[in-house]
């Protein structure tokens, strides 16, 4: 994406610059996290990539297509912050339904039951979302996105509402699924350790106006298991990212 800008008209009729001058290239097959304080336009960025919103200036291409064309070709899998499951469908029904819409562009259904079993939902295939815990619901949402075999996975703080233990277990499962497919991932998060643990590259953003202040490469070996969290290298990256975020935040304060 190049020189992207997005405006929102506010209640007082003044345009709020939600995103300004965003230049970002994401290599196919990499795991990129976007981190930054609230209100820096992380979610807006995801909606621009997936074609839910249009940029007011600049250009975004996804594998050579416009975002709308890419969505039309089912290039995206999206995991929102809330699991967004349909309460009247079973776990299996929920992960199957995206294959029934826009059928022309469907990339074929992998063995969804096996995928669900892999993330520990084997005994819950026919349960309704109301019978699941928060972590199980979010796992269902992740399988729903992965099951589409997308080129690009967009995750908007998918673990934000979960407790720490569940969060770490789900990070592990997310990495395992990703190692198998190697789709491009754009992962929005608030959490520094989550960003370091998962990503090849962390994009740091600052608010008012939403912009990119830093891009940090995370050069840790994969696969990254639980143990890596306690290694000194991991810690060094966390510190670096924390510094970068502090800079981003103080910039924002000056600008406002």
């Amino acid at each position: 994406m190049h020189g992207v800008r997005r405006l929102y008209e506010q209640a007082d009729l003044v345009d709020l610059i939600a995103l300004d001058d965003i230049d970002l290239t994401i290599e196919p097959g990499t795991f990129v996290s976007i981190i930054g304080p609230s209100g820096c336009g992380k979610s807006t960025l995801l909606r621009l990539i997936s074609g839910q919103e249009s940029a007011d200036a600049g250009r975004i291409t996804v594998c050579g297509l416009t975002p709308k064309e890419a969505a039309e070709a089912k290039a995206f899998g999206f995991v929102p912050q809330s699991p967004a499951l349909l309460p009247w469908l079973s776990v299996l029904g929920n992960v199957t339904l995206p294959h029934k819409v826009n059928r022309r562009s469907d990339r074929g259904r992998p063995d969804l039951e096996a995928l669900l079993r892999e993330v520990g939902l084997g005994e819950s295939l026919h349960k309704l979302p109301a019978e699941l815990s928060g972590g199980m619901k979010q796992r269902t949402a992740i399988v729903r996105a992965f099951g589409l075999r997308p080129d690009v996975l967009l995750l908007d703080e998918p673990f934000g509402a979960l407790d720490e233990f569940t969060r770490e277990a789900l990070q592990e499962q997310l990495l395992e699924l990703w190692e198998q497919t190697r789709a491009t991932v754009v992962f929005v998060t608030h959490s520094i350790s989550e960003a370091v643990r998962l990503s090849d590259k962390v994009v740091v953003m600052a608010p008012r106006p939403g912009r990119i202040t830093d891009v940090i490469d995370i050069d840790l070996p994969r696969p990254r298991h639980q143990e890596i969290i306690t290694s000194p290298e991991f810690h060094a990256y966390e510190l670096k990212l924390r510094d970068s975020l502090r800079d981003a935040f103080s910039h924002g304060e000056v600008a406002s």
Binding site: A71, K74, A84, P98, N102
Partner: peptide
């Protein structure tokens, strides 16, 4: 969010 999930698959 549900609408968004299904709109991203057009």
């Amino acid at each position: 969010p549900v609408l968004e999930v299904y709109r991203t698959v057009a």
